[in-house]
Amino acid sequence: MCNFTNRFLHSTLAETSDEYILSLIHDKNSQNYGFTILVQKYQEKIYWLVRHMLIDHDDSNDTVQDVFIKVWNNIQNFREDSQLYTWIYRIATNEALSVLRKKKNLFFLPIINVEKKLMESLVEDNYFNGDQIQMKLQKAILGLPPKQRLIFNMKYFDALKYDEIAEITGTSIGALKASYHLAVKRIEKYLTSH
C-alpha cells in the first residue's frame, strides 16, 4: 500500500511541470507549497548526483540541503531562459565541486589524497550495496579528475544528453564527448588491469 502511494506520488511529481511549480513559488500565498513540491520532485536526482561525487552520505546530505537553500534564496531571480532542472543541476554540480575543493584545502593535501579519502569512505560506507565489480567501477571513477567524474556520472548513471550536460556544466558538446570518451577508456583500463 505504502509502495503504491509512493509510486503514485512520484509519478504525480514527475508529471508536475516546472512552469506550474514556478507559478506556485512566485505567488506569495503558495510559495512554501510550491517549493516543497520542487524539493520533492528534484531531491532524489540531486542527492544521487551529489552522492556519486562525494560518496559519503553525510557530506551529500549537507550539500543537498545547501543546494536547495541556494535555490530558495535565488528562485525569485531565476530567469526562465533556461530550464529549471538544468539550473538546479548547475547549482548542485558547482556545490559538489566546491565541497571537493574545500576538502582539498581543509586537509592541505593534493587532490589525489582527497580521492584516496573518498575511496576509504567508499569501502567503509554502510550505504553501499553494490557487488564487487560495482565497487571496482566506483574506485575507477574516483580515479578521474573531479569534473571528468561529474561528466561521466551524468552521462553514464543519469543518462543525460550531451546538450543537457553542456548547459549544466557550461562546457561545449565536443569537449564533453572527448572527456566522456577518455573517461570510459581510463575506467575500462582500470577494470581490466585490477
Binding site: N32, T36, V39, Q43, Y47, H52, Q65, F128, N129, L137
Partner: peptide
C-alpha cells in the same frame, strides 16, 4: 557488462523527511 543500477542507498525514510528539513 557492469550492472548500471545505483549501488548506493540512502537511510530509511530519508527522502520523506528531507523536504521538511530543507523548508
Amino acid at each position: 557488462g557492469v550492472n548500471k543500477e545505483n549501488p548506493f542507498t540512502a537511510p530509511k525514510d530519508y527522502f520523506e523527511a528531507l523536504p521538511q528539513i530543507i523548508m
